[in-house]
Design a protein around this nucleic acid. Structure first.
Length: 864
RNA sequence: GCCGAAGUGGCGGAAUGGCAGACGCGGCGGUCUCAAAAACCGCUCUCGAAAGGGGUGUGGGUUCGAGUCCCACCUUCGGCACCA
């Protein structure tokens, strides 16, 4: 009876041994090149499920592969531990969020260990530890000093369910839902802290120092949304220009089409624009106020955007056209947003769709000033024209192209000293205040005498109180804790009140990659003396963070750089990239759940599904079930837990299966039906090692040669696939190689080549299936540890075929195959091909015009 | 509407411009077994008895040769969206 591989006993044993021997601990070693690989750290939600495994196991394989390739690898893990679920659990169960969080962390640490990942656990940190979040506070103070943190009273996005404000990035979709709970957000005017990310907008648009997926770069570029154009002031007719700086009695507009300025027939202010009340004439006042009220209320209620009809009202006031002096009626309309540009526009109905719709509805003149190139027609337009062309009806500017016109008009506005070139961004400053308690307290005090007082650095950290009552009041729960809330002012000693809002948890993750180099340093966020690991060499994680974490951390990094935090390291390692936190990024896809539901939409467990008939059916009732790949979520009840598979097959099977599903970047559904394939594969490899065939008496040169060729071809393929993160084809190649070993087993067992072939198989398996490889390595008598072995090299000469069968095409169609020596010359192949019956037949009566010969690939005869 | 990704057997998928469907699942047939499971072996794109033909979302193009490159379109998924 052959011994089966028993993951239940083997895996924990090796996990323990790895930990005891510390083989994954990263220590400085100048003799080897460093390699810092990081995967996005998890939120401790309670259970490690396949959604965590999916990004982590290939990343672990990458770390292991790099180690075997001779790199000194840092591969750490921590927990992103602040956040709302802990607070919600606290309200529900009446326990402190800290308790809930730490309980989950302890549980997940254990689960992460059973995965067999090669983390350096000594470097673990947890962001809700004061030891960590004091540096969030320190960074806040540095940002404050540099005028990168400021407080402003303005309408903000508010989630009524989470009872907190949200950053703009956290409001998703057309329906403007809270990214966490999918509740429609509302607007609320509040005094909130922001980080001035817009100051770095231009540099953040420079992606030249990044090797990132194009998709993420594009998302960030669109999110930042840079537009170039002109800005200029409209003065309001009949009102003196009291103060150009504050814009009183004049207002500024931004346009990307200054070339159309002669087509301006009206202008529009956003309903929230401060000038609206001031310029509205008495006879128009009632109507304008009603409109503004309604518009503001609409944004609060969250208007459904089904009806796109433009609406607005005339204020009764006129602006003066800066170039023609003509009267320009001023409207108020909700299609102009206070949050973009200047909150006011010049309207050119002939060449802007929105202005066109508006003018059509309200009977405003439409004045074409751009004619499509080559067309003489410059009369009335029946539809909007936004294309290229030349300027017409534009005074002295007629005949200029759109591009020339943009420059010329902008120059003219400059000459008149009323405007000039301007750049506008779509990105807004990052709103970081949260009215929640389970986050980093903002280190600010408000003193009646001294005003806004930053907490002195030597008084950090401002720690969270232990006892806080939880009531969903819509204000920070910290406000309810008097001992936290009131404290002496560090400047005057009087009574000061603390800021009771906490920071957005994305601040925690904006600099965490640096913390792993010195996770417990109490002097600074990270110690440059231990920073030789920086920056990260490879970062992996989900694309859902494209415009949040991945943008915020770039911003943070650049501020840290400008603070000089990397100067020492830059001096030591000038060739490294110190401008980006994550120079290389790989986004894996999303693992979904293949869910079976009955006619009532209830989830039917996989074990209760029968696949006997045409369609999946319930085992008990025989009723048909629907099958769909769904995003995993607790509320849908379809989260796949790896526990059952772990119990039955072990971690290596789960790891391998996740890699085998398909390309890592695409994700895909977890289909339990496919697991058997990798189970069989590992059992076959196991049997190859533990149940050897009888040794051969004499070696068979052909079989030996076949074996070596297969070995070196597999090695080449697997090595190259590691570099491009193609884990599904790594598994395929190893399966193929294993099949070949089975075929050659009886003819080569006992030869050195066989032993070498088997050894290579185990080495290639080590990064992706670490436990079973270690066990086999030991049983092969090779000692500890397979993970400290050098990655084998392939010999190109040994990968070569001796003779090959190449296809013979006639005019691109496959007509024959011919076997030739792999190194055969064109003349040899030509001769072999032309003597073939099928080729002669095809050639009969026709002329061979050309013979295409691709060495080692094919022959194509062009005849006619 | 704009931006991005993807369309290949019953299913997951493979394929530096060079034999489409590797590898695996499932299915079919077989060996072993009293039987079943497991394991192992063979077959499995499609039409055709065969010879041979057709085939990678659709229509064009480039090329000796296109799943792969170019143009236009269709579908699905993801992101953004009154951004002046």
């Amino acid at each position: 009876m052959v011994e089966r591989y028993d993951a239940q006993s083997v895996e924990p044993r090796w996990q323990q041994r790895w930990e005891e021997s510390g083989i994954y601990e990263a220590n400085p070693d100048p003799s080897r090149p460093k390699y810092y690989v990081l995967t996005m750290y998890p939120y401790p939600s309670g259970d490690l499920h396949v959604g965590h495994w999916y990004p982590m196991t290939p990343t672990d394989a990458h770390a292991r592969f790099k180690r075997m390739c001779g790199f000194n690898v840092l591969y750490p893990m921590g927990f992103d531990a602040f956040g709302l679920p802990a607070e919600n659990a606290a309200i529900k169960n009446n326990v402190h969020p800290r308790e809930w969080t730490y309980k989950n962390i302890r549980r997940m640490e254990g689960q992460l260990r059973t995965m067999g990942a090669s983390f350096d656990w000594r470097r673990e940190f947890i962001t809700c530890d004061p030891e960590y979040y004091r540096w969030n506070q320190w960074f806040f103070l540095q940002f404050y000093k540099r005028d990168l943190a400021y407080r402003a009273f303005a309408p903000v996005d508010w989630c009524p369910k989470c009872n907190t404000t949200l950053a703009r990035e956290q409001v998703v979709g057309q329906e403007r839902l809270c990214e966490r709970c999918e509740t429609p957000v509302i607007k609320k005017a509040l005094n909130q802290w922001r980080f001035r990310i817009t100051r770095y907008a231009d540099e953040l648009l420079d992606f030249s120092k990044l090797e990132w997926p194009e998709k993420i770069v594009t998302l960030q570029r669109n999110w930042i949304g840079r537009s170039e154009g002109a800005e200029f002031a409209f003065s309001v007719k009949g009102a003196p220009d009291i103060d150009a700086a504050t814009g009183t009695h004049s207002f500024r507009v931004f346009t990307t089409r200054p070339d159309t300025i002669f087509g301006v027939t009206f202008s529009v202010l956003a309903p929230e624009h401060p000038l609206v009340a001031e310029i509205t004439t008495d006879e128009r006042r009632a109507e304008v106020e009603a409109y503004v009220q309604q518009a503001i209320r609409q944004t609060e209620i969250e208007r459904q955007s089904t009806d796109k009809e433009r609406s607005g009202v005339f204020t009764g006031a006129y602006a003066v056209h800066p170039l023609t002096g003509a009267d320009v009626p001023i409207y108020v309309a909700d299609y102009v947003l206070m949050t973009y540009g200047t909150g006011a526009i010049m309207a050119v109905p002939a060449h802007d769709e929105r202005d066109f719709d508006f003018a059509t509805r309200y009977g405003i003149e439409i004045r074409p000033v751009i004619a499509p190139a080559g067309s003489a027609a410059d009369g009335k337009l029946s539809e909007v024209y936004t294309g290229d062309g030349v300027m017409v009806n534009s005074g002295g500017f007629d005949g200029l192209t759109v591009d020339e016109g943009k420059k010329a008009i902008t120059a003219e506005l400059e000459r008149l000293a009323i405007g000039g070139t301007a750049v506008t961004f779509r990105i807004r400053d990052w709103l970081i205040s949260r009215q929640r308690m389970w986050g980093t307290p903002i280190p600010i005090l408000y003193c009646d005498q001294c005003g806004v007082v930053p907490v002195p650095e030597d008084q950090l950290p401002v720690t969270l109180p232990d006892v806080v009552e939880f009531k969903p009041t819509g204000e920070s729960p910290l406000k309810l804790d008097e001992s936290f809330r009131y404290t002496p002012c560090p400047t005057c000693g009087g009574r000061a009140e603390r800021e009771t809002d906490t920071m957005d948890t994305f601040i925690d993750s904006s600099w965490y990659q640096n913390r792993f180099v010195s996770p417990h340093n109490s002097e600074r966020p990270f110690d440059p003396a231990e920073g030789a690991w920086l920056p990260t060499d490879m970062y992996t994680g989900g694309a859902e963070h494209a415009v949040m974490h991945l943008l915020y951390s770039r911003f943070f990094h650049k501020v840290m750089r400008d603070m000089g935090l990397f100067d020492e390291l830059r001096a030591k390692f000038p060739q490294r990239n110190w401008d980006e936190p994550f120079p290389r990024l790989f986004n894996q896809g999303v693992i979904t759940a293949l869910t079976y539901r009955d006619e009532l939409g209830r989830v039917v467990p996989y074990s209760q599904v029968s696949f006997e008939g045409e369609k999946p059916a319930a085992r008990e009732t025989g009723k048909p079930l629907t099958e769909a790949a769904e995003k995993m979520s607790k509320s849908k009840g379809n989260v796949v837990s790896p526990d059952d598979y772990m119990k039955q097959y072990g971690a290596d099977v789960v790891r391998l299966f996740l890699m085998f599903i398909g390309p890592w970047e695409l994700g895909g559904p977890w289909n339990p039906r496919g697991v058997d394939g990798v189970v069989r594969f590992l059992n076959r490899v196991w049997a190859l090692v533990t149940d050897p065939a009888a040794p051969v008496a004499a070696s068979d040169p052909t079989a030996t040669r076949d074996l070596q060729r297969a070995q070196h071809q597999a090695l080449r393929k697997v090595t190259q696939d590691h570099e491009r993160f193609s884990y599904n084809t790594i598994v395929s190649s190893l399966m193929e190689y294993t099949n070949t070993l089975y075929r050659l087993r009886s003819a080569t067992t006992g030869t050195p080549e066989w032993d070498g072939g088997l050894e290579t198989l185990v080495l290639m398996l080590a990064p992706i299936a670490p436990h079973v490889s270690e066990e086999m390595w030991e049983r092969m008598g090779r000692g500890y540890s397979v993970h400290q072995q050098e990655w084998p090299r392939w010999d190109e000469a040994l990968t070569a075929e001796d003779s090959i069968e190449i296809p013979v095409q006639v005019n691109g169609k496959l007509r024959d195959r011919v076997t030739v020596a792999a190194q055969a010359t064109e003349a040899e192949v030509r001769e072999a091909v032309l003597s073939r019956d099928k080729v002669r037949e095809a050639l009969d009566g026709k002329q061979l015009r050309k013979l295409i010969f691709v060495p080692g690939k094919l022959v194509n005869l062009v005849i006619g």
